[in-house]
Structures are given as structure tokens and as C-alpha cells.
Design a binder for these strands. Structure first.
Lengths: 209, 209
DNA sequence: TAGATTGTTAATCGATTAACAATC
DNA sequence: TAGATTGTTAATCGATTAACAATC
């Protein structure tokens, strides 16, 4: 990306993308900024401003061409460039994320899962294998040497009590981005970026005002 | 709440709460705004400003009393007032959320789950029963008449293709808040509030800058 | 005392909304 | 033409950061 796009804009563009996918499904060819704004309960001039960042232009009196705008968003946000990720914790949440059909469409490719439960080892979830957590470093090295890709993202869905220890393993395995679904705050070196999913916070935000 | 608190502040307060829980675990009695700020990579004056909204005061030279501040946040955000919710979709994600130990601590009480898979009906997840989706209205009425509580929140974890239909059932069942984990935009009356979890957006935000 | 920390005000920064000319 | 819509600039609003006196 040439110009940095703020997180808020990225999130909104993703929502526009969902709406556009739905347009395609319904064979709706054009959509206006007002219609998008109405669905998301936001201001229509904001929609136009966000869209102005993409390589797409609207038609006066008609709106935006849905398939065109969809592609422009995909290009802007770089959905093509697949990024590989590990999932730590193959419980319900980890499994749900491994199965999340959309992730692949948006450039997130799950390389493998890890768990400490011996019963789960070697099982497949959505075609992805579950490895013992102790083999994290080994699998990361294998991905790099054999599959020629560096896995820089990890999705953390272990129990809260195991979160910090897991994060430390991830740092050792040269992971650069940790997407933290546990309700804990991780302490990691500055070179590693943590994104706290903070489900509880989202719930409180949304029911408290 | 007397003064409305912005969503951003609510989210940060929740993160502070996580940090404070960890302090208790480690028997750390005091924590400074700088220490909290360092863990979350934010500005320390912002931490102090957020805390100023709570009924808690810090000590010059020492910081904030962790158990005290924790309680003050709980009071401010209303963790005591339990709110009941239904989960639609008892797949991996729905199950994960039903098991999420923390939700109860933060005032979210799962009343029941719903699914269309006959094999899942009547099973228990974390002590919560799974009902056929067709009984949504019936269960809602039962909660109101027998358990004297109105369930106003629904957590939507059904497949994307079933999302809009499910939302319509929820509207009929008088649900007021829909926490939408599906990658779709729901079309609902203005009286119903939708919170889009937008996992894909969060992922893109965090790996794109 | 010197140093660390809070609480709060002022300054800055960024995001949202309003407005409207241009277009078809 | 009248009406609807984009694209963009200016105005507003809100959130973050800087700064510092007060305190222990």
C-alpha cells in the first residue's frame, strides 16, 4: 500500500465488501453510497470518502458498479497476498477459526494448528493438521525450508492460564503478529505486535450505549 | 450509567480490568498508569483520564490500588447486572462462546442455544441446552413467563447463508441486540441494534499497518 | 530533599459530518 | 428538465497527547 489506510477505514471497507458480495449474489449491479450507509447506519459522505481511496469511480445518478468496486477493495486491501498463520489451541474457538471459510478469501491461510491434548494430535480440521505444541519451532522451520514461506502470524485461542507461556513460545518461533483471543494482556518484546480481540469489551460497548 | 462513556473508553477499561485481574493473581497490590500504558502500548495520560471516570483514586508516588480499581471498573461498567442472551448456531463458534468462562463474570449470561441440526438438539453445552431453532419464540416466551426475564441479546454464529433469515426470526422474538459473528450485513428495523464482530476486518487492520 | 506519580488543563491531531458544485 | 448521485472541500466534533502543578 502506498498511502497508509487507517484501521477504521480498513474495517469499513471490509464491511462494504460484505455488502458487495451480497449484491453479486442477488445480481444487483449498482449500489449507491446512501444504500451502503443505510445498511451500516453511517454517513453516506463517509462511504464516498472511503471509496475514493480505491481505484473505483461511481456513476452520477446511478451509484457504484458492485463487481468493480468489490475488486477495487480487494486490490486495495491486498486480499490476494496470502499470509500464513498458525492457530494455537485446537478447542472450539481454534477449530471455528480454522474452518472459517472466508479467511482464505481475505488472504489468511491457516498453515497448521497446535494443541497439548495428545488425543487431538494428528487430527485434521478443515484439512489442517494439529501438531503438539512442543513442535511449534520445528513446524515453523519446516514451513520455511520446505514450503519456502515464513509464518509470521499466530492466532492464540488457548486457555487464559496458558496464554503468556504460549506467547513466549511464539516469540521464540519468530512470530511477528499475535492475534490474541484470550482475555489476557500479553507481555512481549516491542518487535512483536499483539492484537487483542477483546470480545468482552465489544460486548460491553455494544450493550452499554 | 450517568455520563455516557464512549465505546473506546469501555474497551480500554475492559483491558485494564484484565491487567488488574492478573495483578491480583500475582499479589501485586499497586500499579501505575505508566505500567498499564506500557502493556497496552498506549499513552499513560490516557490511562489516567480513563480511570478518572471511575470511583477510584490513585496515590501519588505509588499508583493505583489494584483490587480497588478493579472493583471500581466493575461498578462503572455494570458487570453485576446480568444480561441474558441466546446463541444461534451451536457449531464450534457458538459452542466456544457458550463455554467462554469469562462472559458470566462480565454480566453476560447464556440462556440457551439454538440449532437446526436434529443431532444436536437437547444436548448441553456448559450446562446450557440446545433447542431447535423453530422453538426460538417459544423459549423466549418461557423465559419471560417462568424465569421472569426478557432475553434481549442474541449472538449469531450460524452460517453466512442463514444469517439474514435468522435475524428475521430474532426480530420476531423481540430481540433488541444482535451480536453478529457472521461475515454478512444484516438488514433489520431501526429498533434493533446490530454489532458486527467483523473478524476479517480486525485481521486486515492488524496485519496491514 | 529528590524523584515519582497523579489529576487535569491546554494543544494537537484525526475522524466524521455538512454542504454543495459538477454531472448525467 | 428535474432529480439523484458523486467527488471534494470546509466545518465540526471527538479523541489523543503533551505538559505541568500538586502531592507524597
Amino acid at each position: 500500500m502506498s498511502v497508509p489506510i487507517s484501521g477504521k477505514v480498513i474495517k469499513r471497507l471490509t464491511l462494504y465488501h460484505h455488502i458487495l458480495s451480497d449484491c453479486l449474489l442477488k445480481a444487483k449491479e449498482y449500489i449507491s453510497s446512501q444504500q451502503i450507509a443505510e445498511l451500516l447506519k453511517i454517513d453516506d459522505s463517509q462511504v464516498r470518502k472511503d471509496i475514493a481511496l480505491c481505484a473505483a469511480s461511481g456513476k452520477t445518478n446511478v451509484g457504484y458498479n458492485a463487481p468493480e468496486l468489490k475488486k477495487a477493495i480487494e486490490q486495495l486491501l491486498g486480499f490476494q497476498a496470502q499470509k500464513a498463520a498458525f492457530i494455537l489451541g485446537a478447542g472450539n474457538l481454534g477449530s471455528a477459526l480454522a474452518k472459517h471459510a472466508d479467511f482464505a478469501d481475505y488472504g489468511l491461510d491457516i498453515a497448521a494448528l497446535f494443541d497439548i491434548d495428545p488425543a487431538k494430535i494428528d487430527r485434521l480440521i478443515n484439512g489442517k493438521k494439529i501438531y503438539p505444541l512442543s513442535e511449534l519451532h520445528h513446524v515453523a522451520t519446516h514451513e520455511q525450508l520446505v514450503n519456502k514461506r515464513r509464518v509470521e502470524i499466530a492466532i492464540l485461542t488457548v486457555p487464559a492460564s496458558a496464554a503468556q507461556k504460549s506467547a513466549e513460545l511464539l516469540v521464540q518461533a519468530q512470530i511477528k503478529y499475535i492475534w490474541n483471543f484470550t482475555p489476557t494482556i500479553l507481555s512481549v518484546p516491542d518487535s512483536v505486535r499483539v492484537c487483542n480481540e477483546n470480545l468482552v469489551g465489544n460486548f460491553l460497548e455494544f450493550t452499554n450505549n
